[in-house]
Design a binder for these strands. Structure first.
Length: 641
RNA sequence: GCCGAAUUAGCUUAGUCGGUAGAGCAACUCAUUCGUAAUGAGUAGGUCGUUGGUUCGAUUCCGACAUUCGGCACCA
C-alpha cells in the first residue's frame, strides 16, 4: 500500500517494521519527530505501519507531542525513582493537561521536596543515556510475571482485556499502551513540581500513594513560559490580592467563613445591586428566606436523609433545627404560602440566599470553597409548556451577565444517572431534550456528561473560563422533579384543576464568594470602574495651596455618587501616586496650581502614564459613561493557549 | 476527612546545629511642602500559632491540637 510521507509517496508493506521510517527522514527531522498519526490514531515512531490512510508526523511542538512528552517523562520519573528507591511500586502515571504525574508506593519512605532535586538529576542522567523506548506486546501471563512484585500493576493487568503492551527503557519496564517518544533523549526540559498524596484508583477507601507532579516541554523556552504562567497565577491569587487591597479576610476563629472588609463589601454591593436591578427587569420577584428552619422541613425536602453530614444543626426550645444548605425549601414555602393560578406562571422567585455547608476541612480554599456563601439563586415555577421558553430566556440572561465580566464559558448537559434517580424515564428524556433544544435555539454549544445529573433531574452546568484558562463551575440550571412532589406544589390550570408545576433551580454567578474570588484573579484586582471599591483618588500636590480645591472636587464627585477618596497625607506626590496605582484605582487626580486656577481635573487612568486635563463636568460625564457601560478598566491579557 | 508542608511584629520575611530574635514596608514623632510608582532621621512594636513532653534551659527537638498551603477524596 502507498503512504504519503513528507511529500514523498512510499510503499508500505503489511506489518513492515516502522524502524525503516527513519530512513525517510532527514537527520535533523528525526530530532523533532516523536510519533506519527495514522487515521487519527497516534503511534510510536517505530511502530509497524499496518494500514494506509491519512498520515502525519507528530513533531515536538504540537499539542499531541506535549501529551506524549509528558507521558514519557512520567516513565522517566518512574525509572529514576525505581533506581533510587528499591522496592518502589508504581500505580498510574498519566499525562494531564498541565503536565504529568506518577503515583508511587514507596513503602515507609516519606519523600521530601528536596528529594525532588535528587530525582530530577537522576532523570537528567538517564535522559543523557538516550535509551530507546521499546514497545513490546505480551500475553497476560507474561505481563503478570513481569509485574509479579507490584500489586498495583497486577491489579491493572487483571482487568485488562485485549492487547497488553509494555514499554522498556534501560532496565525499566512499565505497563503502558503508549505512545512514547522514540528514546529518552527527547525528554530534556522538565521540572518536578510537587509531592502530594493521592488515593489508589481515586478511592478514599484505598491506600494513599505518593504522587509526584511535573511538567515537560519541548524546549527550554516553553518550559520557562509554563513556569511564567504559574508565576502570574500566583501574583493574581485572590487570597494575596484580597489581603493587599483590603477586600476580605479569614480568621482562625471561623475556618471557611470569610469576612468581607469595607472595600470588599463595596465591590460586592455593586454586583448585588446590579443583580437586583437585572432581576427586577427580567420579571423576577425577589425574596429573602430564613437561614434556620426546622428539622421537619428538611425531612420533607429529603435533605435530612441525603445531606445531613453537610448540614449544621441546632436546637431551639428542644426542637431540632438546621441551618439551610440550600434555598429551595424556603422558596417552596413561599410558593406554597398562597394559591396559584396558571395566570401567575411562570413565577420566578429570586433570592440572594445565605447558605452554610459543612465542607471537609481539607476542601477549604480561599473564597473558592467556603462553608458559608451567598448563592444568587432563583426558583422558577412554570408549566410544561412554558419550560422551553423559560430555559431559552435563562440562557440569554446568563449570557448577559457573563459578558459584563468578559468571561468565556462552556455548557455541559448532565443527564439521568444510572441508578438512584427519581421520576419517569420518559420525563427525564423529555426534559433532557428540552434543555438541549433550548441550547440549540439560542445558538449555544454544549457537551453532554452522561449520568452526571442530580438524582432529581437533569441540569445544564456553566463552566466559566478565566483569562488564565482555568475552568470554574459557577452557573447551573437544574430541573427538579422531586421537591414539587414532596411539597405538593400546585397551581390551578385553565380547566380549574390542580396541576403540578415544573420547578427550575438556577444560579448564575454561583456564589458571590467564589465569583468574587474568580473575578479578582481574572482582573488581577483591576476591577472595572462600575464595581471597583474606590473609583477616584484625589492627590493635592501641596496641602497648603491645593487642599481646598481638592476637597471641593471630592464633594462634587460625591454628588455623582462616585466612590472617591482624598489622600492628603504629608507624603511626596510620587509616593501617593504609587499607592494609588498599587491599589489599582481607576482614576488618580492630581491637583496643583494649574487645576486650581483653571478649575480643571488632571487625571491619570490606571494602567497608563498619560496625564489628561479636562473640565470637571467632562470628567464626571466620562466616568459616568464608563460606569453605565460597565467597560473594562484595562484590556484583559490572555495567558492560556 | 486523608497524604505532605508551613505558621517568627499589622504585612513580607531573615535567623537560632537548644542559651528567648534581626530586617524591609506599614504605624507613630520630627524635619522636608514636594507635579505622577518609595524624602530623610528617629521611636515604638514579638509569650517565635496553642498546648503537653524531653532538658539546667525550648522559638529551635518530640507529641497533640488549631489554622493555612499543595494535592487526593468530597462538592446529591
Amino acid at each position: 500500500m502507498e503512504l504519503k510521507i513528507n511529500e514523498k509517496v512510499i510503499n508500505v508493506e503489511e506489518g513492515k517494521n516502522g524502524h525503516d521510517l527513519t530512513l525517510e527522514l532527514a537527520k535533523d527531522e528525526i530530532k523533532t519527530i516523536i510519533a506519527y498519526k495514522l487515521n487519527g490514531k497516534l503511534f510510536d515512531l517505530f511502530a509497524p505501519i499496518n494500514e494506509a490512510g491519512d498520515f502525519e508526523f507528530i513533531t515536538t511542538s504540537s499539542d499531541e507531542a506535549f501529551h506524549i512528552l509528558n507521558h514519557s517523562c512520567a516513565h522517566l520519573l518512574a525509572e529514576a525513582v525505581s533506581s533510587l528507591y528499591k522496592g518502589a511500586k508504581f500505580g498510574v502515571g498519566p499525562a494531564i493537561d498541565e503536565g504529568f504525574y506518577y503515583d508511587i508506593d514507596l513503602g515507609d519512605v516519606v519523600l521530601k521536596e528536596d528529594d525532588l532535586k535528587k530525582i530530577e538529576s537522576k532523570m537528567k542522567e538517564l535522559s543523557k543515556k538516550n535509551e530507546y523506548v521499546v514497545r513490546k506486546v505480551v500475553s497476560k501471563d507474561e505481563a503478570l510475571d513481569i509485574f509479579k512484585n507490584d500489586e498495583y500493576k497486577t491489579e491493572l493487568i487483571n482487568e485488562l482485556e485485549g492487547e497488553i503492551s509494555i514499554y522498556k527503557q534501560g532496565d525499566y519496564v512499565d505497563l503502558c499502551c503508549g505512545p512514547h517518544v522514540p528514546s529518552t533523549g527527547f525528554i530534556k526540559f522538565f521540572k518536578l513540581e510537587t509531592i502530594a498524596g493521592a488515593y489508589w484508583r481515586g478511592n478514599s477507601e484505598n491506600k494513599q500513594l505518593t504522587r509526584i507532579y511535573g511538567v515537560c516541554a519541548s524546549t527550554k523556552e516553553k518550559l520557562e513560559e509554563i513556569e511564567n504562567i504559574k508565576e502570574e497565577a500566583k501574583k493574581r491569587d485572590h487570597r494575596k490580592i484580597g489581603k493587599e487591597m483590603g477586600l476580605f479576610s479569614f480568621s482562625e476563629y471561623g475556618p471557611g467563613f470569610p469576612f468581607f472588609l469595607p472595600k470588599g463589601l463595596t465591590l460586592r454591593r455593586q454586583i448585588e445591586n446590579w443583580w437586583y436591578d437585572l432581576h427586577d427587569e427580567h420579571g423576577y420577584k425577589v425574596i429573602k428566606t430564613p437561614i434556620i428552619l426546622s428539622k421537619e422541613l428538611w425531612l420533607t425536602s429529603g435533605h435530612w436523609d441525603h445531606y445531613k453530614e453537610n448540614m449544621y444543626t441546632t436546637k431551639i426550645d428542644d426542637r431540632d433545627f438546621a441551618i439551610k444548605p440550600m434555598n429551595c425549601p424556603g422558596a417552596i414555602l413561599v410558593y406554597n404560602s398562597e394559591l396559584h393560578s396558571y395566570k401567575d406562571l411562570p413565577l420566578r422567585l429570586g433570592e440572594l440566599g445565605l447558605v452554610h455547608r459543612h465542607e471537609a476541612s481539607g476542601a477549604l480554599n480561599g473564597l473558592f470553597r467556603v462553608r458559608c456563601f451567598t448563592q444568587d439563586d432563583a426558583h422558577i415555577f412554570c408549566t410544561k409548556e412554558q419550560l422551553k421558553d423559560e430555559i431559552e430566556n435563562l440562557l440569554k440572561f446568563f449570557d448577559e451577565i457573563y459578558s459584563v465580566f468578559k468571561l468565556d464559558y462552556s455548557i455541559v448537559l448532565s443527564t439521568k444517572p444510572e441508578k438512584d434517580y427519581i421520576g419517569d424515564d420518559a420525563i427525564w428524556e423529555q426534559s433532557e431534550r428540552i434543555l438541549a433544544e433550548a441550547c440549540k435555539a439560542t445558538g449555544k454549544d454544549f457537551k453532554i456528561n452522561p449520568g452526571d445529573g442530580a438524582f432529581y433531574g437533569p441540569k445544564l452546568d456553566f463552566k466559566l473560563k478565566d483569562c488564565m484558562g482555568r475552568i470554574w463551575q459557577c452557573g447551573t440550571i437544574q430541573l427538579d422533579m422531586n421537591l414539587p412532589e414532596r411539597f405538593n406544589c400546585t397551581f390551578i390550570n385553565s380547566k380549574g384543576e390542580k396541576e403540578r408545576p415544573i420547578m427550575l433551580h438556577r444560579a448564575i454567578l454561583g456564589s458571590f464568594e467564589r465569583f468574587i474570588g474568580i473575578i479578582t484573579e481574572h482582573f488581577a484586582g483591576a476591577f472595572p470602574a462600575w464595581c471597583t471599591p474606590v473609583q477616584i483618588k484625589v492627590l493635592p500636590v501641596n496641602n497648603n495651596f491645593h487642599l481646598e480645591y481638592s476637597k471641593k472636587l471630592v464633594s462634587e464627585f460625591k454628588k455623582h455618587h462616585f466612590r472617591v477618596e482624598l489622600d492628603d497625607s504629608e507624603e511626596k506626590l510620587g509616593y501617593r501616586m504609587r499607592n494609588a496605582q498599587m491599589q489599582k484605582i481607576p482614576y488618580t487626580i492630581v491637583v496643583g496650581d494649574k487645576e486650581v486656577e483653571n478649575k480643571t481635573v488632571t487625571y491619570r487612568k490606571y494602567g497608563t502614564d498619560k496625564q489628561i486635563t479636562v473640565s470637571i463636568d467632562d470628567f464626571s460625564k466620562m466616568l459616568q459613561d464608563e460606569i453605565d457601560s460597565k467597560s473594562l478598566l484595562v484590556e484583559l491579557k490572555k495567558f492560556s493557549k
